[in-house]
């Protein structure tokens, strides 16, 4: 589904990246722990998080996330928005909680990282 469809499903507000709403999203993952995101994130992921600091965008950039959705109506500060703009990572904010936002997307057919074939970035 497209980021535009996700925006509508989650009643989300676009903070940056109106021109990226046609981006196709094929899977998503949610966490407030950036180390967990670094551990399970895969390129192309849609990241849902309640962490709005600069590290959320840095982490999204490192794992090559397609977009970030901040839950519970949270919004990042100006420095974080500027960084998202530099990195071309669209960011949206939904009033829904993490549980509700993830549930709605999953129900609408957007799978999690478990839908991908086993990662090649692990030595284990």
């Amino acid at each position: 589904m497209t980021l535009q469809q996700i925006k509508e499903l989650l009643q989300a507000e676009v903070i940056f990246g109106d021109h990226y709403l046609d981006r196709e999203i094929t899977f998503a993952g949610g966490s407030d722990l950036m180390s967990d995101v670094l551990a399970f994130g895969q390129p192309g992921i849609l990241l849902l998080t309640g962490l709005t600091n600069l590290q959320s965008v840095r982490t999204a950039d490192i794992i090559e996330a397609k977009a970030i959705i901040y839950v519970r109506g949270k919004k990042p500060d100006a420095q974080t928005i500027k960084f998202a703009r530099e990195k071309n990572i669209p960011i949206l904010s939904t009033p829904l909680t993490m549980y509700e936002a993830c549930g709605i997307l999953y129900q609408a057919g957007l799978p999690g990282v478990g839908s991908l074939r086993p990662t090649t970035t692990s030595n284990e």
């Binding site: 180390s35 967990d36 670094l38 590290q55």
Partner: peptide, 18 residues
């Protein structure tokens, strides 16, 4: 609160470095 300090840092490094 920064999103780190969950005890995954060194294991993540080990997993990714050859």
């Amino acid at each position: 609160e920064m999103g780190f300090g969950a005890g995954m840092g060194l294991p993540n490094i080990k997993k990714n470095a050859h």
